[in-house]
């Protein structure tokens, strides 16, 4: 069991980083740190996918002169495609989240989520 964790150290690292990112996104009260946590989480998944697509001793699937273009020479290209798609998704979410953080800061002058919720509840009670 423990030896498995060390043999598959890419996957182990990916899961630990995923856990850190998940916990930060869920529990940290600072919005910017939450965004960082979200990026940790997604990056961990890309590490996982990339390590699954790599096969030791093989090359990237690009053919060039003097190279025998059979599949035995190449790594699996699909995880790379998935990682690219995932990066696009997480970039757009980071952009959206950062824009939201700017609007929150303009509206409440703080990035502490607990403080923001407190201010908002005070407003709601006054109404």
């Amino acid at each position: 069991m423990v030896q498995g964790l060390f043999t598959n150290y890419y996957e182990t690292t990916a899961m630990i980083v995923f856990g850190i990112g998940f916990a930060t996104l869920l529990l940290n009260k600072n919005i910017i740190k939450k965004i960082i946590g979200f990026n940790f989480m997604d990056t961990a998944i890309y590490l996982f996918l990339a390590s699954k697509g790599y096969i030791t001793g093989r090359l990237a699937p690009i053919s060039f002169e003097g190279m025998n273009p059979t599949f035995e020479n190449y790594i699996n290209p699909i995880p790379a495609g998935l990682v690219l798609t995932g990066i696009v998704v997480s970039v757009s979410f980071s952009a959206f989240f950062l824009a939201l953080a700017i609007r929150l800061y303009k509206a409440y002058n703080t990035l502490d989520l607990n403080e923001i919720i407190r201010l908002k509840n005070m407003e709601a009670e006054e109404e």
Partner: peptide, 20 residues
Amino acid sequence: LVATTRYLIMSLLGSGLFLI
């Protein structure tokens, strides 16, 4: 704004689990 932040955070957690 706060509603969106909450919604976004929970949704991101959900889709992270789905992706993994």
